[in-house]
């Protein structure tokens, strides 16, 4: 019986390991290319990290650096040159500015609204809630074109505002918070009113602290989605490099796939991708919880 159990288990591990290897292939490729020299990449040799021989890089000297500066190990060169060629910190900063602003505005709008929908009685409440339910059906990407027309008419293309405005309303956030507030006992709110608190202070001083777990889940959901979003920035940012978010930066690095060096290109892609992956691995439980909690509704 026990032996049978172990055989069953190792069979599963076998399948799962094959699956895991397939899943990891592009990650392997990405990391490996960011470390190796151009010759090793083109001849598909050197395994994961390559030989790391100190050498002089011709593309670097062509850019006007002295031979001395351009002589180093491939992994160092790839990352060094990537930062020389593109304003990577700027892209990461933009990503941060956009995702954080989106999240803060979403909370600012959604939290009071969901509190009112869950705990206040007023005329038209049912109507507002059914409006929220209807809007849940509309993916913002699907209406990107008319939104783009509106923003273009308002002269907002190529601004931070264009990156942020369409995402300021999260009906999903309203729905999630409302469901969460429904479970908060009325006594808590009544007690706060007895203490003479107004509705505004109740929202920000009583409900907000209570809602932290749900907000954290929502934060992960929102930040991940907008950090990775490529479609919308691609539409509203047409050329101003100063406004590039990480995915737009990635696209720019790729530029000429046949002409340029692959090492520095992959190094920039790794740099831009890594913050979120590291955050995920460190706080894995929270991430999975966040995604499932927001996912299950």
């Amino acid at each position: 019986m026990l032996a049978r159990h172990y055989i069953g288990e190792s069979w599963k591990h076998g399948l799962l390991i094959i699956g895991a290897l397939i899943v990891l292939i592009p990650f392997y490729m990405m990391v490996s290319m960011s470390l190796k020299s151009q010759q090793e990449i083109q001849s598909i040799s050197g395994g994961l990290v390559g030989a790391q021989e100190i050498q002089t890089f011709p593309v670097c000297t062509k850019h006007g650096y002295t031979e001395e500066v351009c002589t180093m190990r491939p992994y160092k060169y790839n990352f060094w040159f990537a930062f020389k060629k593109a304003p990577i910190p700027r892209y990461l900063m933009n990503g941060l500015i956009v995702t954080v602003s989106i999240f803060l505005i979403q909370v600012l709008i959604a939290l009071p609204c969901s509190y009112a929908l869950a705990k206040l009685r007023f005329k038209g409440r049912e109507f507002v809630f059914s409006m929220v339910l209807f809007c849940l059906l509309i993916p913002v990407h699907a209406i990107a074109l008319p939104l783009y027309v509106m923003l273009a008419k308002a002269g907002l293309v190529d601004t931070y505002a264009a990156l942020i405005i369409p995402w300021t309303i999260s009906v999903f956030g309203i729905f999630l918070m409302r469901q969460f507030f429904m479970t908060v006992p009325d006594e808590l709110i009544d007690a706060a009113r007895m203490d003479g608190m107004g509705e505004y202070s109740i929202v920000w001083k009583v409900m907000l602290p209570v809602a932290i777990p749900a907000l954290l889940a929502f934060a992960i959901f929102s930040v991940v989605a907008h950090w990775n979003d490529y479609f919308w920035p691609r539409i509203v940012i047409t050329g101003n490099r100063d406004l590039f978010t990480p995915p737009l930066g990635i696209r720019e690095f790729r530029g000429g796939i046949d002409s340029d060096e692959f090492g520095p290109m992959m190094a920039s892609i790794v740099t831009v991708t890594i913050p979120l992956i590291v955050a995920f691995i460190v706080a894995q439980k929270r991430f999975v919880e966040g995604i499932t909690m927001t996912g299950m509704k």
Partner: peptide, 8 residues
């Protein structure tokens, strides 16, 4: 699911 799809 987490990794930037464009990079991948």
């Amino acid at each position: 699911v987490m990794a930037t799809l464009l990079a991948m």
